[in-house]
Simulated scan of single mutants.
Amino acid sequence: MSAEIELKLLVNPAFAAFLSKEMASFKVLSHTQQVLGNCYYDTTDYFFSSQRMGLRVRTLNDQFILTLKTDGTTIGGLHMRPEYNCALDDASPRLNGLNQFADLQLSRPLEQLQQHLKPIFSTDFLRQAWEIELGNGANIEVALDQGEIEAQERFEPIYEAEFELKHGSLDDLLTFVESLSLSDGIRLGSVSKAKRGYRLAGIVPLQAFEWQHQWQQLLSDLSQAATASAALSRLFAYEQSLTEYYAELLTMPLSAAQLDSALQAFMTLYRYYAQHQSLLWQVYQQQVGQRLKVRLDQDSIEELIELNQRFLAKLTELSQLSGDENRTLRLHEFLHRGNGVKRQIYLIKLTLNG
């Protein structure tokens, strides 16, 4: 078993082209380009998806690797999860190789799962990868994936940039991504390729997010939080869910009422941030004096507060526009802002220890 720690960005083709050029600014230990074919499997009753796992066979240069990714932790676009890999002789998903991992505990025997496996969807993409060495010796793999997901003759494009920590600290990883030229048209992605594939296949549909109910529950939770750090962690988790829901919903035709609801949801969130700046300072003060591997400095706190206020003003301006098509486009652009990624990295640094 290995622990995968990566930050994922969903990007557009323009940013993908720009990122490949920007890598020349760093010390590149290696640069590879490979076509990866992946077939994801599950049982007839969808055991793996119900356990928030992903089982795939990857084909690379006539080599075959079985990978099981188990449920982990996602904070914004930061993914931390265990994964189990074993080599295969061919593309058939034989699970017996997973027996070598004593720490892998499944609620069903591998032999039983093997009998009921079937292919669900595939992801095929070109991966460019750069291994970067930072000045302090930390190593980060930057992977740019461009391709598509296919499920039941339906297709969805893949444009993702993944930053995986190979050696060093989480702070090295987050600060590296934060330092990049983060143009608009990107956002942090907390949904894996596996989950996107399950959605495209209609197995894990997009769940309705009743934000008014969720918001009232959140306010109750915040009032009972033991520490400011715990409160901010809960608030940021709500923001992640809200953003992922509406980012996907905006790819569909929306009614005027749905657009009004989306704008109200985000304005309510950012108004709370603007009115509760003290919460951010309290978490900052909790971090001061502690020996934390990831922390935020005072200048970044001030920038975070300024970004919250700027985003609230932008939402207020957006809410006053006329025309549903125009509002849809502008809200989509709002959710894919480069400085929005930087803002969320600040929040990740504040909440990792909460």
Rank of each mutant, 00 (worst) to 15 (best):
Y46E: 04
G77M: 06
A102P: 14
A87R: 02
L66W: 00
D45S: 07
Q112L: 13
L110E: 04
I120Q: 09
L110Y: 06
Q115W: 03
S122N: 15
P119R: 05
T44R: 01
S107F: 05
P82V: 05
N61F: 07
L88W: 03
A129E: 10
Q115H: 10
K69E: 10
N85V: 02
Y40F: 13
G76E: 03
R52P: 00
S107D: 08
R127A: 14
F48T: 04
E111L: 11
D62R: 05
N139W: 15
D90M: 02
T59S: 13
Y84Q: 07
E111W: 10
S50K: 15
P109Q: 09
E133L: 08
N85S: 07
Q100K: 13
K69M: 03
G135F: 11
T70K: 06
L117R: 07
D42R: 01
I132T: 14
R58Q: 02
R58S: 00
L110Q: 06
E133S: 11
T44F: 02
I75E: 01
L110R: 04
P82W: 03
L95P: 09
R56L: 01
R108A: 07
H79E: 00
Y84D: 08
L68C: 00
E111N: 13
S92K: 12
N136F: 12
N96F: 13
F47P: 01
I132M: 11
Q115M: 10
E131R: 13
A129V: 04
N136I: 15
A102W: 14
L117D: 09
I75L: 10
R52L: 12
Q105H: 14
N139R: 14
F125K: 12
G135H: 14
R81C: 06
N136V: 12
G135E: 15
T67V: 03
C86K: 02
I120N: 09
N96S: 13
G76K: 01
L134D: 07
D103V: 09
H79M: 01
G97A: 06
N139S: 14
S50Q: 14
Q114H: 09
D71W: 11
R108E: 10
A129C: 07
E83D: 04
L95H: 06
P109V: 07
Y41D: 09
E83R: 08
Q63P: 01
A87L: 05
H116T: 14
F121Y: 10
G54I: 02
N99Y: 11
T44H: 03
P109D: 12
T70G: 08
N85Q: 11
Q128C: 15
T70P: 04
N85R: 03
Y46P: 01
A102Y: 10
T123P: 10
T67K: 08
Q114K: 11
D42Q: 03
P93F: 09
L117K: 13
L66N: 00
G77V: 06
T70V: 08
